[in-house]
Amino acid sequence: MKQNWPFLLLSVLVLILLVSLGNWQVLRKAEKAAYIAAIDARVAAAPVALPTAPDATADQFLSVRVSGTFTGPEVRVLVSTRDYGAGYRIIQAFEANGRRLLIDRGYVLSSAKDTPRPAGAASIEGNLHWPNERDKYTPENDVAGNTWYARDVPTLAQALGTEEVLLVAREEAPKPAQILPLPLDTSTIPNRHLEYIITWYGLAAVWVLMTAYFLKRRHAKAKL
Rank of each mutant, 00 (worst) to 15 (best):
Leu78Gly: 05
Tyr196His: 14
His219Cys: 02
Tyr84His: 12
Ala34Gly: 05
Val66Arg: 07
Arg170Met: 08
Trp130Tyr: 04
Glu163His: 04
Leu10Ser: 14
Asp104Asn: 09
Lys2Val: 14
Gly68Gln: 04
Gln92Arg: 15
Asn132Met: 05
Leu166Cys: 01
Pro139Tyr: 07
Gly161Ile: 13
Tyr201Gly: 03
Phe94Ile: 09
Ala41Lys: 06
Ala159Glu: 08
Ile103Ser: 04
Phe61Thr: 05
Val75Glu: 13
Lys136His: 14
Thr81Asp: 04
Gly120Asn: 08
Asp142Pro: 13
Asp114Tyr: 05
Asp185Tyr: 04
Asp55Met: 00
Asn127Met: 02
Tyr196Asp: 11
Tyr137Glu: 15
Ala173Tyr: 11
Asn127Gly: 04
Ala38Arg: 04
Leu209Asn: 07
Val206Gly: 02
Ser63Cys: 13
Trp148Ser: 07
Thr81Ile: 10
Gly126Arg: 09
Pro73Trp: 02
His193Asn: 15
Gln3Pro: 05
Asp135Gly: 11
Leu224Asp: 15
Tyr137Cys: 06
Val208Tyr: 05
Leu215Met: 01
Arg82Gly: 14
Asn97Ile: 07
Ala212Lys: 02
Thr138Leu: 01
Ile179Pro: 11
Gly22Lys: 09
Lys223Ser: 14
Ala177Val: 10
Gly72Phe: 03
Ala112Asp: 14
Arg82Lys: 15
Phe70Lys: 06
Asp135Val: 08
Leu8Tyr: 09
Asp152Phe: 04
Ala173Val: 15
Pro118Arg: 03
Phe7Lys: 06
Arg151Asn: 09
Ile91Val: 14
Ala49Phe: 01
Ala157Thr: 08
Pro154Gly: 11
Lys175Leu: 00
Asp135Lys: 12
Asp104Ala: 12
Ala34Asp: 14
Glu195Leu: 14
Pro51Trp: 03
